[in-house]
């Protein structure tokens, strides 16, 4: 047979399902608490002490997990150019200054807690930062949110069951200085011979 043996038609079915363009910075998505399959136990703590009290034999692990969560937060957490837009999303007294490498300052929510979870079958612990909001207008109000805006339910400490990808590395988020530096040739060439064409720049 010289053709593809089988195709997953479910995946190919569309009915106009292009992924929507997301709005700015924090994009809130449906809860990522999962019931079965690709999931594991995690505990949510507010800080190192909280974690150590619960796990007296794991003080070092708690420290490391907390530091790791902080690092992930500054790498991948939501960032805002103005304090007011951060406050609008996360509430008063909940935004901190983030010093970017080139000396610019921007604002991001303080890490309100972190997830702590043993890697199944290994003597190693994963962590991930969590945010919450004190602003009633925010969808994150009273909830836990991950760096990429997944909501993990009501803000309370203790045990949760989460998907494994909660601990996967997340894309870094940085301040965008400008947009539109690609695509200029296409508009120049399009202006030749009428404005609209079905065809793009494929050959």
């Amino acid at each position: 047979m010289k053709r593809t043996k089988s195709i997953n038609l479910e995946r190919m079915r569309k009915v106009s399902k292009y992924s929507p363009v997301k709005p700015l910075t924090l994009v809130v998505a449906a809860s990522s608490l999962v019931a079965c399959g690709d999931s594991r136990e995690a505990a949510i703590y507010s800080n190192v002490e909280h974690c150590s009290q619960d796990n007296p034999s794991l003080t070092q692990e708690c420290k490391a997990a907390y530091q790791d969560a902080l690092a992930k937060s500054s790498k991948s957490g939501p960032k805002y150019t103005s304090k007011s837009s951060c406050v609008e999303e996360f509430g008063e007294n909940n935004c901190t200054v983030y010093h970017a490498s080139n000396g610019n300052n921007w604002f991001m929510p303080a890490m309100a807690g972190f997830m702590f979870s043993q890697v199944i079958g290994r003597n190693h612990y994963d962590s991930a930062p969590l945010y919450t909001s004190y602003s009633r207008r925010s969808p994150v109000y009273g909830q836990w949110s991950t760096v990429d805006g997944d909501l993990y339910g009501k803000r309370k400490y203790g045990n949760v069951r989460v998907g494994n990808n909660a601990f996967k590395s997340k894309p870094a988020v940085v301040k965008t200085m400008s947009r539109g530096g690609f695509g200029s040739t296409v508009s120049a060439k399009s202006s030749w011979g009428g404005s609209s064409s079905k065809s793009g720049w494929g050959g």
Binding site: Y18, S19, V21, A100, S101, N102, N104, V174, K175, T176, M177, S178, R179, G180, G181, F182, G183, V186
Partner: peptide, 12 residues
């Protein structure tokens, strides 16, 4: 997905 024209230059 991101449109070519929407790609940004981030710091660093």
């Amino acid at each position: 997905f991101v449109y070519v024209e929407d790609i940004g230059q981030g710091e660093g």
